[in-house]
Simulated scan of single mutants.
Amino acid sequence: MFAVFRTGGKQYKVAKNDIIRVETVPGSSGDFVQFNEVLMIGDGSQTTVGKPLVAGASVAATLIDQIKADKVIIFKKKRRHNYRRKRGHRQPLSLLRVVDILTDGKTLDASAKDAAKSAAQANAEKSKASHTALTATTGAKRKAAVKKPAVKAAPKAAAKSAGKKPAAKKKAASKKSEE
Rank of each mutant, 00 (worst) to 15 (best):
E23G: 07
D43F: 04
I41T: 14
M40C: 08
T47L: 10
E23P: 00
G50D: 00
V25A: 05
I41N: 01
L53Q: 11
P26L: 04
L53F: 13
I19S: 00
E37A: 13
G44C: 06
T48V: 09
L39V: 15
L53N: 11
P26S: 13
G42H: 03
T24G: 10
V33S: 10
D31N: 11
P26T: 10
V49L: 10
I19K: 04
G42D: 03
G42M: 15
I20F: 04
G42L: 05
K51M: 14
L39R: 06
P26K: 15
V38L: 09
V22D: 05
Q34T: 13
T48G: 10
S28R: 15
N36L: 09
S45W: 01
I19E: 05
V38A: 06
S29G: 14
G42Y: 07
T48I: 14
V49S: 10
G50Q: 02
D43L: 10
V54C: 06
V22P: 03
Q34Y: 08
M40L: 15
L53Y: 14
S45M: 11
Q46N: 10
E23T: 02
F32H: 07
T47P: 00
D43S: 15
N36E: 12
V25K: 05
S28Y: 10
T48P: 01
L39Q: 09
K51N: 11
F35Y: 08
T24F: 09
T24P: 08
L39M: 13
T47R: 08
I20Y: 06
S45P: 06
V49K: 15
K51E: 11
P26E: 12
F35K: 00
R21T: 13
T24S: 13
F35W: 00
F32K: 05
V22C: 09
N36M: 09
Q46P: 03
L53A: 12
E37P: 00
V38F: 07
G50W: 05
F32M: 08
S29M: 13
D43P: 01
R21C: 12
T24Y: 11
M40F: 04
E37L: 12
D31G: 06
E23W: 00
P26C: 05
V22I: 12
G30D: 08
S28V: 13
G50L: 01
P52Q: 06
V38K: 04
G30N: 10
T48C: 11
I20R: 02
E23D: 10
I41D: 02
D31P: 03
G30C: 06
G30P: 05
L53W: 10
E37V: 02
G44L: 07
V49D: 01
N36H: 13
K51D: 15
V25W: 02
F32C: 03
T24M: 12
L53K: 14
M40E: 12
V25E: 08
G27F: 02
V38R: 02
G42I: 07
G27R: 02
I20Q: 04
V54A: 02
V33M: 05
I20L: 07
I41K: 07
R21D: 11
L39N: 05
L39S: 04
L53C: 06
E23R: 07
